[in-house]
Amino acid sequence: MFPYLGLKASTNQRQIDERLQYHPQVFEFFTIEADVTSDGLDHLKNMIDYVQNSGVAHVVIHHPMKFEGVHNEVSVDPNTNPKQYQFMMTSSKNLIQIAKQFGIQLLIHGGYNQPVSKIIQQFGSIQAGRKIVFERLDYFKSFGESNVMFENSISPLFDFGDSTVEQAVVEHQYRLCYDTSHGFIVLHGNNQKLQESMRRLQGQVVHYHFVDSMGQFHDSLQLGKGAIDWRPLKQVVNRRATNIFEINLKDQFNSLEMQASYDYLKNLWK
């Protein structure tokens, strides 16, 4: 029942087993560069099978965040960064195929946190950069269909809360992951605007990252520890979506902060 106990872990089986002992309804794999090598993909498939056989109904793969220490941006230029572009495209397609094979979801970030100065240096303008992002996402949407979704970023290339981006997202009919902390940061900690943004995109959101924040930078706080007003969000979420609690953990082998966030939201939204 929404909100779900949704937990996240790497492909490390010790982390996975720590999460599974609490019987989550949603499990999200946080992958890294090593997980999309030939051996890594085989291990990932074994772990997906392991999680599904444990009784978890909803499984998500989070696309690798970095390649060779640099954010794995959808907007990467194939001419100046051919290796990174090849990694982004090949890993995305391979993970989409796995998502289709297992009947699960792949999450791809529309962007990360590129500063405006770097975007303008690379593309000439934010609008030109966004055009590249939407062209790539259109490709992944066509290839992945109902097994792929796109997450909002802090970067202006794909930031929910920006009316231009949201209008384009609606027009392209993307399946979305809405990260509450990213939206809150983009909107400079404005709760009313966060509620409005989530309401506008409600029908297209299929997955949530519930995360608290002070609204200034990427802090990934436990729910109730930041400045997000969670009570009104009950009216603007898509209750047919899934969710996880994407919280920074003190210990990657103890999901305490994720579970506390679930308890907080469940009790608040009774």
Rank of each mutant, 00 (worst) to 15 (best):
Q97L: 12
I98A: 10
N147S: 10
A99W: 00
Q114G: 01
S163C: 04
A168K: 15
S142P: 00
S117L: 08
N113S: 15
V148E: 06
F150H: 12
G111A: 15
S142I: 02
Y139G: 01
I119A: 07
M149Q: 13
I98M: 09
Y112P: 01
E135Y: 01
S142F: 03
I119H: 05
A128E: 15
Q114K: 15
G124N: 06
F102V: 07
F140H: 05
I126T: 08
G124Y: 10
V170Y: 14
H172P: 01
P156C: 06
D162Q: 10
G103C: 12
N147G: 02
Q121V: 00
S125F: 09
F134R: 04
I119W: 06
I104H: 01
N152H: 05
S163F: 12
F123D: 04
A99C: 04
V133R: 07
N147E: 04
S125A: 09
V170F: 14
F143G: 03
P156Q: 07
F158I: 11
V165C: 11
F143D: 08
K118F: 12
Q121Y: 05
T164H: 09
E135W: 00
F158L: 12
Y139S: 05
P115N: 11
V170L: 15
G111V: 01
D159W: 02
A128P: 00
V133F: 09
S125V: 08
Q173D: 14
E145K: 13
L106G: 03
K131N: 13
K100P: 03
K118H: 13
Q97I: 00
Q122R: 14
D138W: 03
F160L: 07
Q173F: 08
P156Y: 06
V165D: 01
F140T: 03
Q122V: 06
T164D: 13
E135A: 11
V148A: 09
A99K: 01
V170H: 14
I132V: 15
I120F: 05
I132W: 06
Y112N: 00
V116W: 11
E171W: 12
F150I: 13
H172Y: 14
N113A: 15
G124M: 08
E145F: 02
Q105K: 15
F134C: 12
S117N: 12
V165E: 03
R175H: 10
G111R: 00
